[in-house]
């Protein structure tokens, strides 16, 4: 018998078989799902864009971005978004100041210090923190963080930036920990071993060799966690208040971009009214900011550091 040579037509023959038909069906299902997702995104973006466009047709963009008074529903409405932006920035920066040390130290501990068993326990604890619903964090901010804060500073308001900031920081710490650990794990172990073999302490090797080699990944972890903080809604809505002022004290209430959208939308806004357009403008701004942060984070992750060819 002559050995059978596999030629191209043999593969083509198979296109009508049941396996191929299943493939085609699966392909259509996947395509439909992808189209649905993409379509939904397009509709959401479209609604935001139209609402924001209508908003800017009535209110000049200069007043929106430079104005310092946010009173969209007043008799003479003022649309200076700065107080909301300032509140969001402060809470985001404060939260990352809490989350970055906490998350990065956890990441270093998990990757380079923890033994097998304690590591598993700590990782499980971090994962548990990551799976807490934000409404629970909101409840904690309102009913635990704020009362504690007021034991120290009795002047703290019922709704204040500090409690929300602290709890948002706790909420995003697992993001920093997990992404940071991934970044550390992506560093060639040879760096760690070589550093140790040069007679440096573990902490020194991690701080001076491994962490710098993981700098991009760590920056991405911090950036993506900050994007979560910017978009965080439940905690600030529940605990930070609705005061759209330019308060400097963290003990005072502040209103973030997200809290404005949520609190206003709770009051059942009419989809054709000015309220909706203001909400759309703020939501669009929020989208642009978080999208940019995500894109930057992904770009950092996409470009691996040079020298990672070594295993």
């Amino acid at each position: 018998m002559v050995a059978r040579t596999v030629t191209r037509p043999l593969f083509l023959e198979g296109t009508g078989g049941p396996g191929a038909r299943a493939d085609r069906v699966a392909r259509r299902v996947f395509l439909a799902c992808a189209a649905l997702t993409g379509g939904t995104a397009a509709v959401v973006l479209g609604v935001l864009a139209v609402g924001a466009a209508q908003f800017f047709a009535e209110a000049p963009a200069g007043g929106f971005f430079a104005g310092t008074t946010w009173a969209p529903f007043a008799e003479e409405p003022r649309f200076g978004v700065w107080p909301l932006v300032a509140a969001t920035s402060r809470i985001t920066i404060g939260a990352i100041l809490v989350a970055a040390p906490l998350g990065l130290l956890s990441a270093v501990y998990l990757q380079h210090y923890a033994g097998r068993r304690t590591g598993a326990v700590v990782a499980a604890a971090v994962a548990a923190l990551a799976s807490v619903p934000t409404v629970v964090f909101g409840y904690v901010a309102l009913n635990a963080a704020t009362p504690l804060l007021r034991l120290v500073w009795p002047g703290a308001e019922a709704f204040n930036g500090a409690s929300a900031t602290l709890v948002v920081g706790l909420m995003i710490a697992p993001t920093v920990a997990f992404l940071g650990r991934e970044a550390l794990a992506a560093v060639p172990p040879a760096y760690f071993h070589a550093g140790m073999a040069l007679g440096a302490s573990r902490g020194r090797v991690v701080a001076l060799v491994v962490a710098p080699a993981a700098a991009r990944g760590i920056a991405a972890a911090v950036l993506l966690a900050m994007a979560r903080a910017v978009g965080e809604t439940m905690i600030v809505t529940m605990a930070a208040g609705s005061h759209a002022g330019l308060a400097w004290s963290p003990l005072e209430g502040v209103r973030t971009l997200t809290a404005f959208v949520a609190q206003t939308s709770l009051g059942d806004i009419a989809p054709d009214g000015p309220d909706f357009r203001a909400v759309a403008a703020v939501a669009a701004l929020l989208f642009v900011v978080t999208y940019a942060m995500h894109a930057a984070g992904r770009a950092l992750l996409a470009r691996r550091p040079a020298g990672s060819a070594h295993p």
Partner: peptide, 20 residues
């Protein structure tokens, strides 16, 4: 062990200069 490694140095099969 840190002192051990300072007295007894090691060079690996693959060169592993730090990215510095």
């Amino acid at each position: 062990p840190v002192e051990v490694r300072r007295r007894i140095g090691m060079i690996f099969q693959r060169a592993t200069p730090f990215p510095k």
